[in-house]
């Protein structure tokens, strides 16, 4: 089993709902809290597991804006785990989720260097590395209703731009979406083999207009023929 997220760039409006939903769930979750620095001061900053960046492609007027959420990709070849000297970082064999054991981490930052996707953030207060847990404490929690056993970010996303599922199962919604929509992984050349995939914006066929009547009744309004229609 390879659990992960699929992000639909065709519908992501860049609202940051997933990022804040993640923040609130995880600030009281297994790697809690997610410290905020200078929250009411001059340079507010903090620990987040999911961040949304915004890009522009092409040039005006043929430009497109892309909203681009990024969190841990739960890579198959998770170098972040390989390089961790303490064993704090680990990848669960049963579902591929990459986690950091807060009790083991020594805060050396090395794993974050190994992560191409900027998925790991050090919490200076606890001195430990934190990252997306794929909401492991939600998705297996049998006390939650089944439909709530989803990552917080997926539940929140108003544009349904985040899908959660098993990318090993060819019939999962995630796998199907990747197959049908040409989903891709980021920076494949680095060979991390990320589980998370991105669905590119759809291209939709032009709306036909040639089937419309060419008639031009417009010449003169008074000549317009009336149609007899009962009110």
């Amino acid at each position: 089993m390879r659990l992960g997220l699929v992000i639909d760039l065709d519908t992501c409006v860049g609202c940051h709902a997933c990022a804040t939903a993640c923040k609130q769930w995880n600030t009281s979750s297994i790697t809690a809290p997610l410290t905020d620095y200078d929250p009411y001061g001059k340079e507010p900053s903090g620990v987040w597991f999911n961040r949304i960046r915004h890009y522009e492609i092409g040039e005006y007027p043929n430009n497109k804006t892309i909203n681009f959420p990024m969190s841990c990709m739960h890579c198959e070849n998770a170098e972040c785990v390989t390089v961790c000297p303490t064993g704090a970082s680990y990848k669960r064999p049963e579902d591929g989720i990459v986690l950091v054991d807060q009790d083991k981490c020594m805060g050396c930052n090395y794993c974050s260097w190994a992560c191409p996707y900027g998925a790991r953030e050090l919490d200076r207060e606890s001195g430990t590395m934190k990252k997306c847990t794929l909401c492991v404490d939600r998705i297996y929690d049998e006390t939650l209703p089944v439909e709530d056993r989803q990552p917080a970010c997926v539940l929140a996303c108003p544009a349904h731009a985040r899908l959660f599922g098993d990318l090993d199962d060819p019939e999962s919604t995630t796998s199907r979406a990747v197959r049908e929509r040409g989903g891709y992984a980021l920076m494949p050349e680095l060979n991390y083999n990320p589980t998370n995939h991105y669905l590119p914006p759809r291209t939709r066929p032009a709306v036909p207009t040639s089937d419309l009547p060419r008639g031009s009744l417009a010449r003169k309004v008074k000549e317009w023929v009336n149609r007899v229609i009962e009110r």
Binding site: H16, A156, H160
Partner: peptide, 17 residues
């Protein structure tokens, strides 16, 4: 945790930032 109410007519479970 504040979550969208899935049964609610307006947001059907989702929530904004």
């Amino acid at each position: 945790f504040i979550q969208g109410n899935r049964n609610h007519p307006i947001n059907k479970g989702v929530l904004c930032a």
